[in-house]
Simulated scan of single mutants.
Amino acid sequence: MFTLDADAFEALVGDVFDTLPDDMVDGLDNVVIVIEDLPEDGSLDLLGLYSGVALTDRGQYGFGELPDMISIYREPLLSIVDNEEQLREQVRITLVHEIAHFYGIDDDELHSLGWG
Rank of each mutant, 00 (worst) to 15 (best):
D57F: 07
L46C: 07
A100W: 02
L87A: 04
G42W: 05
M69I: 15
D23W: 15
I33R: 01
P76H: 06
A54I: 08
L110M: 07
Y50W: 13
F102E: 11
R74S: 02
D45L: 09
T94D: 04
I80H: 10
G52W: 07
D18H: 14
I80V: 11
Y73W: 02
S112D: 15
Q60V: 12
E36L: 08
M69C: 12
V13A: 00
D29I: 09
V91C: 05
Q86P: 01
T56P: 02
S71R: 05
G59K: 14
M69S: 12
I105K: 09
V16W: 02
L95G: 05
F17G: 02
Q86Y: 01
V91F: 00
F17V: 05
F63M: 15
L78W: 01
E65S: 12
P67M: 09
R88T: 06
V31D: 12
W115Q: 15
V96I: 14
T56V: 14
L77G: 01
G52E: 10
L77C: 04
H111L: 09
A11C: 09
Y73S: 06
F17K: 06
N30F: 10
E98S: 02
D18T: 13
V31K: 07
D108N: 13
V34A: 13
G59Q: 12
L87N: 00
V96S: 04
P76G: 04
V91D: 00
R58H: 06
D68F: 02
T56H: 04
S51R: 13
D26R: 15
D18A: 12
F17T: 02
L47K: 08
V53P: 03
L55W: 00
E75T: 01
V34S: 12
L110K: 15
G59H: 11
D108A: 14
G62L: 01
G14H: 08
D23P: 09
G114Y: 03
S79K: 06
E40K: 10
V32S: 12
Q60W: 13
T94Y: 02
F63S: 13
Q90S: 08
L110F: 03
R74C: 01
L46E: 13
M69L: 13
D37L: 00
D107V: 11
